[in-house]
Design a protein around this nucleic acid. Structure first.
Length: 283
DNA sequence: CACCATGTTCCTTG
DNA sequence: CCAAGGAACATGGT
């Protein structure tokens, strides 16, 4: 479930639930997701620690905690990979099949589950230092984007997935942004005109903003709806249409473009699907 | 069985 | 040195 909007929604959801909660015990079912932090160190550091805050950076979750009797806070870094979920559940409830880490919070447990185990929950925060600017931050200007794109011949769609360029865009919102900007996903990054970069810059911010707004209207309740996939596809009681109509281009190969009716095409770039309208996205 | 899947990192090749 | 492509990671859905 993870690109910037989904991670942002999750952070907003979990922040108040975790604030002030103290970890009583730490169960690690998949040591791989902690790497390179060793299991004993992970447990020793987290046991007795209290959650102070939770923020998002790109697709990462940054938990701030404080050890018992200490003033200095420390960070825990989370990433959902392709299929990760994090949620609170009352103690006694059966754990999901692919629970990777479970934190005992007293009445509740914090569960990180991930069927593919591509995600992370670790004390190693170094990956954050490699991220480019937040797309919604003032630091991310269209001038900055133009400067970065000028230096690459890579197809613009592929370039948008580069987290060191701008953090948080994934395979879905890369296609959505280019569709909104009316740009061909195949165009080399350094061949976008200044006007096209400006359009793309705006489209990225609009697409992400709309996705966050959309997700914010939906109550996250994994307890009542254990099969919820946050707000990607269908699912979720009571708001199915809302969800499925959210994305204009992604996963719609063969369907008519909402703007011109031309059938949407799927191509493969850098071993990943790209969806676009061959009529609206010629340039 | 085949192919596809919201991500990142590492390795190879040019 | 850099860019680009592909594999690997691991499981589930169609």
């Amino acid at each position: 479930m993870p690109e910037l909007p989904e991670v942002e929604i999750l952070a907003r959801h979990l922040r108040p639930l975790l604030h002030g909660r103290t970890i009583r015990a730490v169960e690690v079912f998949r040591p791989k997701v902690l790497a390179p932090t060793p299991v004993p160190r992970f447990q020793a550091v987290l046991r007795g620690a209290t959650f102070l805050d939770l923020t998002r950076r790109g697709k990462y979750l940054l938990f701030t905690l404080r050890a018992r009797g200490s003033r200095a806070p420390f960070s825990l870094l989370g990433h959902l990979g392709m299929t990760g979920r994090m949620f609170l559940t009352p103690k006694g409830r059966p754990l999901p099949k692919h629970a990777a880490v479970v934190l005992d919070l007293g009445r509740n447990r914090f569960v990180y589950e991930d069927p593919r185990y591509f995600g992370r929950l670790t004390l190693d925060v170094r990956p954050v230092a490699r991220l480019g600017p937040e797309p919604m931050a003032e630091a991310f200007t269209s001038e900055l984007l133009a400067g970065a794109l000028k230096r690459s011949r890579q197809a613009i769609k592929v370039k948008l997935l580069d987290q060191s360029l701008v953090a948080g865009i994934g395979n879905i919102y890369a296609s959505e942004s280019l569709f909104r900007a009316g740009l061909s996903p195949r165009r080399p990054a350094n061949r976008l005109s200044r006007v096209q970069v400006e359009k793309l810059w705006q489209a990225i911010r609009e697409v992400l903003t709309i996705a966050i707004e959309c997700g914010s209207t939906i109550p996250l309740n994994f307890e009542a709806h254990p099969s919820d996939k946050l707000f990607y596809y269908g699912s979720a009681a009571g708001a199915a249409d809302f969800y499925t109509e959210r994305l204009g281009i992604y996963d719609r190969a063969g369907q008519p473009c909402g703007s011109c009716g031309t059938p949407i095409k799927r191509i493969v770039q850098a071993a990943r699907s790209t969806f676009f309208c061959p009529h609206c996205q010629k340039s």
